[in-house]
């Protein structure tokens, strides 16, 4: 029963996350159907599988952190209230390596979009070269302070990674709904080869889509395996319950309700 539910959930989520859809931020198609439209690179957040144009999610990321910086620098009374209500989901204000998905609010890590930041960095070395395309007038992404901030951030991230300081919750114990979680096989066990092959085939069901979006956005394919199938919905900050319920576009709601039915 649970497996069926999970399979259905995977199916629904897959449909919802289909890259044929629109980018939730600009509302334009991720994959333009008419040849005339320019294809913009897009990416998928591995914590929730929501897809965005790279430049759209980065704009959100930068906005989020610019707000955070402004908040912490000003210490303005009009901002302090947010600590008590909404801010937890965004940050833990000192933590620059977290963001939240604009669609489901699930927390993602800097490492989830880092490859896209790289992409942007290599494509527009000069501040005025127009980020990816047509965004010349976006001061937020182009400003010196933002570039400095990004560099600083990346170096911090690197340090954190080197020291093993990045907390990546649940990755190691994640179960992809409807899929079999392979037991950690000892490296030496050659008799298990066939079985392993079978498993990876099974897992492969969901691979192509990801590979597709990954290659579209970047080359850092090694991130794919790690993040895949981190539990959906887990990790939602309970403090945000009310807020998330009020987002009519939010897929979690369906999932929760179905799960409840199934538990009866």
């Amino acid at each position: 029963m649970l497996v069926e539910l999970c399979e259905e959930a995977v199916e629904r989520l897959t449909i919802m996350n289909h890259p044929d859809g629109d980018c939730p931020l600009c509302l334009y198609p991720l994959f333009p159907e008419d040849e005339g439209s320019k294809q913009m690179p897009f990416m998928k957040l591995m914590s929730c599988f929501h897809c965005f144009h790279c430049e759209c999610i980065i704009r959100w990321w930068n906005w989020l952190h610019a707000q955070k910086d402004a908040d912490s620098e000003s210490g303005d009374a009009s901002h302090t209230r947010r600590g008590s209500t909404a801010e937890q989901g965004n940050s833990g204000s000192a933590d620059e390596s977290l963001g939240n998905c604009p669609v489901c609010r699930k927390i993602f890590h800097a490492s989830d979009i880092e490859h896209v930041l790289d992409l942007v960095g290599t494509q527009s070395p000069q501040p005025d070269s127009g980020l990816i395309q047509g965004e010349e007038e976006d001061p937020l992404l182009q400003s010196d302070s933002e570039n400095i901030r990004r560099e600083r951030f990346e170096s911090i991230l690197k340090t954190q990674e080197e020291k093993g300081g990045l907390v990546q919750p649940k990755k190691n114990i994640s179960v992809v709904p409807g899929m079999y979680l392979p037991p950690p096989t000892p490296a030496s066990s050659s008799p298990n080869k066939e079985e392993e092959a079978g498993q990876s085939q099974e897992q492969g069901e969901e691979e192509p889509k990801e590979a597709e979006s990954e290659t579209n956005s970047s080359s850092s394919a090694n991130r794919r395996g790690r993040g895949r199938g981190r539990g959906r919905g887990r990790g939602h900050n309970p403090n945000r319950r009310k807020q998330t319920l009020q987002d009519p576009r939010k897929p979690m709601r369906q999932w929760v309700q179905r799960a409840r039915e199934g538990d009866n």
């Binding site: 931020l25 906005w63 209500t85 909404a86 604009p102 609010r105 945000r240 807020q243 987002d247 576009r249």
Partner: peptide, 9 residues
């Protein structure tokens, strides 16, 4: 959602 919980989506 009109204030602190706004999301660009």
């Amino acid at each position: 959602i009109l204030y602190d919980s706004w999301s660009p989506a």
